[in-house]
């Protein structure tokens, strides 16, 4: 199936928090304009940003899921009904027809920034 994904342009970086605000292996949510962005810092210090909205329940909760790996790929399990999403592609690993948007994320001088259109 063709999945509609939010198009992202990387022009606008928004600073959201300091790197140390993020716990390893856990998520947090940032509000950027109207967008809720789930931010994750994995055990090896890598950062990921995906949409916070769980597409199965509609609730803004993905940042509160359990972080882990599936077949080596960093992932988060929705705290609502446990569907697992890839942090890299946003694709739902339990139902390939579902996905969440992904956003560019970087650290600049210890500050985490996300790219939201």
């Amino acid at each position: 199936m063709t999945i509609l994904r939010e198009d992202v342009e990387t022009t606008y970086w928004t600073p959201v928090c300091s790197y140390t605000d993020l716990l390893p292996e856990r998520g947090a949510c940032a509000l950027v304009d109207d967008h809720q962005i789930a931010l994750f810092r994995t055990f090896d210090g890598e950062l990921f940003a995906v949409g916070n909205r769980d597409p199965f329940s509609g609730a803004q909760v993905l940042s509160r899921g359990i972080v882990g790996t599936r077949a080596g790929e960093p992932s988060v399990a929705s705290p609502m009904h446990k569907q697992v999403f890839s942090l890299v592609t946003g694709r739902c690993m339990d139902d390939p027809a579902m996905a969440v948007p992904t956003y560019p994320i970087r650290i600049l001088d210890g500050t985490v920034e996300v790219g939201v259109r």
Partner: peptide, 21 residues
């Protein structure tokens, strides 16, 4: 410490999540 990262959302917020978050 690290135990916090293992907890399901309910244990993490010491409360039960509901359908609207």
């Amino acid at each position: 410490g690290e135990q916090a990262t293992l907890q399901d959302t309910n244990d993490h917020f010491l409360a039960n999540i509901q359908r609207n978050g």
